[in-house]
Design a binder for these strands. Structure first.
Lengths: 235, 235
DNA sequence: CCTAATTTTTGGACTAGATCAGAAGGCGAC
DNA sequence: GTCGCCTTCTGATCTAGTCCAAAAATTAGG
């Protein structure tokens, strides 16, 4: 079927491929585009949503639509730090600590950390950007008893090196899940997404050299910003 | 904000959690639901799309909306056959061969298979179901010269065992990418999706015991049907 | 019973608007 | 300069429908 929707998607796609818009550039507003294509905002928006699903464009809530840069290649099995990984791909990384607190584990977290009763955890929320675009919300939950005095350290750096230098812990084993789902409210807010938009959730659990479960990490990626690449030899 | 959209999503979510609808059961039609919730079809559909994004429900094109069963846990690194993996999770698998042909590699495929000039490949398209629900479209592209007389074999079974028994090939090394993107037309049709709907694409490349690139595989999963689970020890 | 034509149901595409809330920018008071 | 207000711009939510195409159910004919 040659529908309007298809046609519009096709044209915008070509314009992006042809370089009319460059990476991270803002598209005209929905109102302007719908006028340009002689259609209603609803159909135009459906077209944009289609391209968003494909990973060609992304939106920032109430800010507009933008062209997606190439996906970052990410291997969750590698112990490489975020900043190093990004730099290796000729991109620029930055991290901002959003919140740090010590609190009782929620039932979700308790389950992942295999805690029997309600137990205290350190909860660190950070926001990571690539080339000045916010793409990842990370939440780390560490078992308090294993990390005394954690809050006194600089948490804007890599947690892996902090574990090693201050506590002598190495991550020798980990497992993780990759789940396509919707952004929960606090994540959506941090990533400038509308609530309920698609994200890629990675839930990882780390064990130290004594086989002890140390912490877990919830990563919420903007889905157009990343591709997971795993090699069976590289670990 | 307490919007209608949120409220409707919340109610349907509760109804699903509360067991009003069971797995794979059809929800009432969009028209019925919009009347029930005293709203327009557009808003109601937005609510359903939200739940779809979360992975709670799924749709079959022009058939209706259904409640998603629990996600299948899938480890692309494990050499386990699809049918065995599904059986291990107390679910029932089935596979249907859609199409087999021998043709010149498209530029996409040629790139993945590292073919220098246009070269012939065997292309096998299969459709896989779990508990009678179609969840996965798989396309295998094998380098023709490595698999003489392939078309004479039974291709409804596992390709891995076919490689081993008839050609003496073992997959000793592989790498793969996981990409959230939209379903291309032929995939959407096979999975009963509307074109452009969200899928999880896994693109894998296999090498045999001589380090020779043998084949690649494109998997297109219904995103609510699967979660990828990888353990750093298990390979 | 089976097959084929027909009707009904379904979601998909579409129109033409209004209202709302948050983000961003400009402007004035200090 | 900077802080707060206020306007403008943006997408998000919402109304009230129509028409279309494919799927499913029903019906009629053999």
């Amino acid at each position: 079927m040659r529908t309007q929707l298809r046609t519009i998607k096709g044209i915008i796609k070509e314009q992006i491929a042809g370089g009319l818009y460059t990476c991270q550039q803002k598209l005209p507003s929905e109102r302007e585009l719908s006028e340009l294509f002689q259609t209603t905002r609803i159909i135009l928006k459906d077209a944009l949503i289609g391209l968003e699903t494909e990973g060609l464009i992304y939106r920032e809530e109430r800010r507009g639509w933008f062209v997606s840069p190439p996906r970052l290649k990410y291997n969750p099995l590698s112990r490489s730090h975020f900043h190093r990984m990004v730099a290796e791909q000729q991109r620029q990384a930055s991290t901002r600590v959003l919140d740090i607190k010590t609190e009782l584990a929620s039932s979700d977290v308790a389950k992942v950390l295999e805690l029997k009763s309600l137990q205290s955890i350190h909860r660190i929320q950070r926001l990571r950007s690539v080339d000045n675009r916010v793409v990842l919300f990370v939440e780390n939950c560490l078992i308090t008893t294993l990390f005394p005095g954690l809050l006194q350290h600089d948490l804007s750096q890599s947690l892996t090196s902090l574990y090693k230098e201050h506590y002598g812990y190495h991550t020798v084993h980990s497992h993780f899940d990759v789940i396509p789902t919707a952004a929960p409210e606090h994540v959506a807010k941090a990533l400038n997404l509308a609530e309920g938009q698609q994200i890629l959730k990675i839930c990882r659990v780390n064990y130290n050299q004594n086989g002890l479960l140390m912490d877990c990490e919830f990563e919420y990626w903007r889905p157009d910003a990343v591709m997971i690449r795993i090699d069976s030899n590289e670990h």
